[in-house]
Computed example of a mutant assay.
Amino acid sequence: MVESESPDGPRPPATEPAPTSTANGRYLVTGGLGFLGGHLVRHLLALGGEVTVFDNDVTAARTARLRAAVPAAAGNRLRVVAGDIRRPEDIQQALADSPFRSVFHLAAYSVIERAAQDPAGAIATNALGTVNLLDALRRAPATLPDSVVIASTDKVYGEMEGARYTEQSALRGIGVYDAAKLAGDVMGQAFHQCFDVPTVVLRLCNVFGPDDPNRRYRLIPRALSFVFDPGGPVAPELYFESIGHWRDYIFVDDVVAALLLAAARPACRGEVFNIAGCVNLNTPEVLRRVVEVAAGHEEGHDPRRAEKIMENGFRVVVRGQTSGVTTISRQHLDGTKFGEITSFRPRVDFDQGLVRTVRAARAWHLDPTAQPVLAGTAR
């Protein structure tokens, strides 16, 4: 995923790690110990940046895993701050490292089912948390970053009308998670219009890749936790109500590239962009490909297990509807606007990304001594 270097920000991740001299500067990543945040932090460090991570779930294990995935020499350029985005005083601790070249706001209450069970917590994090961060930044104009990139979601659009969502599509996200993210999304735009905070809002689709810990709720890591169950392969579950769902998917390194481009390009500031996926698939097809790729990878390790993975396939199960959870049948983003400004397009196709994801998942579940996948080192 090689892009030309921007003069006012780090270039996106390349096939090989970029020399540390190609980028410098200080960056803040909220939610930096999460799935997407961890990948972004690793890339920024590999590019020579100094990174402050702000996260509410700072444990020794999570911090150690992040540090293990970057070269030892980069460790002194990483600072981890424990704090809650809902608490302005905690945000001030993270901002003590300012001025930042860019701020990447990824912290979120990101599980739809949990959001439905705790609407107040979801709104406080996804909406008011975004306001807390932006308000803290605008109150210190001398240290205002060049850009504040806010990770939003395609779910702000709600049920799709027509062939694709464009940035002009109506915002119909009515689920608790969807509405809370929509509020943060809109407030990001408001702070640019009202206070000249240089925000960029990216509406992301379903992100997948190595080291995604959400094995309880997210489709691909959940499926791989069944396939690579240490007790023997188990058929992944397809929820009956999801059979007709269509979703965009994008590999995590491509999302990192989009985040860096959005931060670096002045033309992006004050704008909202859809980040289109590499593919639009229905849920049964996703699980079919997961099973096939996992079985193919397992052939080189345990042919009998590989055979069992294919034999199991996946199974359809009926589950009770989770109270308060709304579902969207079809989602598909039009990424033309972002592509025209930045020349961005996803570089990793779904099957290539799935191979890398499967490799990392097998190591995680079946090889406890495995090291985390290093950012930008495998294609």
Results as ranks from 00 to 15, higher is better:
A107W: 04
V355E: 12
A295W: 02
R359H: 11
G184Q: 09
S225A: 14
G277A: 06
I328M: 12
F54V: 03
H245I: 02
P303V: 03
H301S: 11
L366F: 00
G277S: 08
A64S: 14
N274L: 02
H245N: 13
R86S: 08
V200Y: 03
V317H: 11
P346A: 11
D196H: 15
E271G: 14
L133P: 09
D55M: 02
I275T: 05
V197A: 14
A363V: 04
K181R: 15
T153C: 07
F251D: 00
L219C: 01
R65F: 04
L260F: 02
D118C: 06
L202H: 03
R345H: 14
L45A: 09
G49W: 10
T63Q: 14
R265M: 15
D118V: 10
P303S: 09
S21D: 12
T322D: 12
Y249C: 01
L137S: 01
V51G: 03
S329D: 11
F35P: 07
V325C: 06
A294H: 06
R114S: 15
P230R: 09
R265P: 00
D211K: 11
F338S: 02
F104L: 11
F195R: 10
S6Y: 15
V156D: 09
D367E: 15
L261Y: 02
S98Y: 08
P368V: 06
L33A: 06
S110D: 11
E307N: 13
R289M: 11
V2N: 14
Y217V: 14
R42W: 00
R26I: 01
N126V: 04
G324H: 08
A151R: 01
D212Q: 04
Y157W: 07
I85Y: 03
D334K: 02
V51S: 09
G339M: 07
L106M: 14
R77E: 03
P145F: 05
L281A: 09
L171A: 07
L287A: 07
G353T: 09
F100G: 09
V256R: 01
H105M: 08
S4F: 14
A116S: 14
V293H: 00
T130D: 01
L182P: 06
Y239S: 12
V53P: 08
R87K: 13
R138S: 09
E161A: 15
D196W: 05
G25F: 07
